[in-house]
Design a protein around this nucleic acid. Structure first.
Length: 290
DNA sequence: CCAACTACCTGTTAGC
DNA sequence: TGCTAACAGGTAGTTG
């Protein structure tokens, strides 16, 4: 379940090992990992061979290896994807889908149990954003992230605020874990419609999202089931600091009320029923926009 | 255009 | 013991 902090940990690891290196050999196994690379896995492997890694960048949960000639190897980790730097002597792990042999003899491996992740080669625009990432909004770590503008869009929506937080076209990088954590910090229930919040309240909420993700990044990210690891195969420690996500039945750290879990969008929402009261299913809002 | 629903996956765990 | 079902959930495509 890598979200922004976990992807950033991976980005830093890949950058430290791969920038300035040449891809001596590329191996793509199976078709699914390259399903978003329309010309197919053989084309992907052939076009990556011999390329140099110029930089490793990220927006939201997408990361990419910027290559020579303004192209990028776009990587999405999906639910369970891992990028691992390994000595070639180490045996292949289960679910190895791609291997890149670098010119220092080390391998960059893409491993993914649930195969929601994938790889694609794409061109970059003038801002250095690959084509498959163009529709993804800036994330809260982006220097040009504009919370007031995001809030202005959110207060025009009747959707629940958690749904809006998870909408990668509005703000990227936030997944189920950090959405629940940000809402707990802001004392807002995730089903409050955007239009029932004020713009300053949403700006504060986005600030909480940024803060909790920054704190998680300092701990090396959150890991629940050892699926998320950095490029050396190590887990982060932020799961010990979670206050809502995964805390069902435990007392809220602020008020002691037991944290509740409810089904939401085929997943779970965790919240404190006292600090984050369920919105009264009130009347259909008369609009108040300006 | 916007909102909501679903397919895509597999290892682990809970329940019978 | 062995089987089945639930669960984890980000993205893209479809439907309304």
């Amino acid at each position: 379940m890598p979200e922004l902090p976990e992807v950033e940990v991976v980005r830093r690891g890949v950058a430290a090992h791969a920038v300035g290196r040449r891809i001596e050999n590329a191996e793509i196994r199976g078709t699914r990992v390259a399903r978003r690379h329309l010309p197919g896995p053989e084309d992907l492997a052939a076009r990556l061979t011999g390329r140099s890694v110029v930089a490793v960048a990220r927006r939201g949960k997408f990361l990419w290896l910027a290559l020579d000639a303004d192209e990028a190897l776009v990587v999405h980790l999906g639910m369970s994807g891992q990028l691992l730097v390994a000595d070639p002597e180490r045996p292949d792990p289960a679910h190895l889908h791609a291997r890149f042999v670098l010119d220092d003899g080390q391998e960059l491996r893409f491993v993914d149990q649930r195969t929601f992740g994938g790889l694609a080669l794409a061109g970059m625009d003038a801002d250095g954003i690959p084509e498959p990432v163009r529709h993804i909004a800036r994330d809260p770590f982006d220097p040009l992230f504009a919370p007031a503008e995001v809030a202005a869009r959110m207060v025009r929506s009747s959707s629940g605020i958690k749904r809006l937080l998870l909408n990668q076209r509005l703000v990227s990088g936030i997944g189920n874990i950090y959405a629940d954590e940000a809402l707990w910090r802001a004392r807002i229930h995730g089903e409050r419609p955007g239009e029932r919040l004020t713009r300053p309240a949403i700006v504060r909420l986005l600030g909480h999202a940024r803060d909790v993700m920054a704190a998680a990044l300092e701990q090396g990210g959150t890991s629940f089931d050892a699926l998320y690891v950095n490029v050396n195969g190590q887990s982060g420690y932020f799961d010990r600091r979670l206050r809502a996500y995964g805390q069902e039945g435990r007392p809220c750290e602020r008020c002691g009320t037991l944290i509740r879990r409810e089904h939401f969008m085929n997943r779970s929402s965790h919240f404190c029923p006292r600090c984050q009261p369920v919105p009264r299913c009130g009347l259909p809002h008369s609009a108040h926009q300006g």
